[in-house]
């Protein structure tokens, strides 16, 4: 089925074989986000090489995706890629290249003008409005500017992500302290975000992203507003989360970070993917 996505036609929409789509939908569509009370499973082995995972259903798939903003900006053109479960992916590129647009397409903040995106079994072309919150509960989103609610304590900020799922008070208490301990902020639960440093605030953001045990963590320049030392710590944390099985997609400008961590790198320039050192069979 790899050939379907490898034909390299220039038509924006590459109609996929129906059977392939059905397989994707069949295996993921019914998957509800779960909130296990138990800590995450023991560290999984290092991300499996792309060659091995190529036969599995990818967690994320872009097929001939185009994004043109209302003002006429061509932000992304003919993007084709696959990201498998358990991968750690850096997305790099110059300012204005289209990295944030790529992220917004994943979170369904923006819709593509052409092409198909499948995320965790949800097809973005046909996702129902009421399924969008469900999609977002399968991902933990980390923002450059942290996005904490200033009137809520650290605990409440993290708990909030679980409240929207209707989790019980008991499991909230358990999971939130677990997540805060992972990011090393167990003792700051009662503080307000304004009482924390930038790095600490971002770690709260990270705790919030992982508290629902999501399939993937999506981070758009999570280290953009913290000092270099803290940047390393945050990427270390993301690596740790990734080792436990969560897929991580991180946009960054810090080339040194990318070099030091040696993971898959997707490079975007002027809206097209110009380099990808591990695209699960869909590289062009």
């Amino acid at each position: 089925m790899n050939d379907i996505f490898n034909t390299g036609t220039d038509t924006p929409v590459t109609p996929p074989a129906a059977s392939a789509e059905d397989l994707i939908m069949g295996s993921f569509a019914s998957e509800e986000p779960t909130v296990p009370v138990q800590p995450a499973p023991p560290p999984a082995p290092q991300p499996v090489p792309a060659a091995v995972t190529a036969s599995q259903q990818p967690l994320i798939e872009f097929r001939g995706v185009y994004k043109v903003y209302d003002n006429g900006t061509h932000a992304l053109s003919d993007v084709n890629l696959k990201i498998h479960k358990g991968e750690f992916v850096f997305v790099v590129g110059a300012s204005g290249a289209g990295k944030s647009t790529f992220i917004k397409l994943l979170t369904h903040e923006e819709s593509p003008n052409a092409g198909e995106i499948v995320v965790n079994g949800y097809r973005m072309s046909s996702i129902r409005r009421r399924d969008v919150p469900k999609l977002r509960r399968t991902m933990g989103i980390v923002f450059q500017d942290f996005r904490l609610i200033p009137s809520m304590t650290v605990f409440e900020n993290v708990a909030f992500a679980m409240r929207v799922t209707g989790a019980s008070t008991r499991s909230i208490r358990k999971r939130v302290s677990y997540a805060l301990n992972i990011v090393g902020l167990g003792d700051k639960a009662r503080n307000l975000p304004t009482e924390l440093s930038g790095g600490e605030q971002q770690r709260v953001g990270l705790a919030r992203a992982l508290v629902n045990n999501p399939a993937m963590i999506i981070a758009d320049e999570p280290t953009g507003n913290v000092d270099p030392n803290m940047s390393y710590e945050i990427v270390e944390l993301l690596s740790e989360i990734n080792r436990r099985g969560t897929t991580v997609i991180m946009v960054t400008h810090e080339h040194q970070l990318v070099r030091d961590f040696g993971r898959r790198v997707i490079m975007i320039e002027h809206g097209t993917v110009v380099a990808d050192n591990g695209n699960g069979g869909a590289a062009r």
Binding site: R136, R137, I141, F143, R147, L148, T165
Partner: peptide, 11 residues
């Protein structure tokens, strides 16, 4: 606040 709610999957 509303945008954060949306981001974490609030209906």
């Amino acid at each position: 606040e509303i945008n954060i709610m949306k981001a974490v999957g609030a209906t």
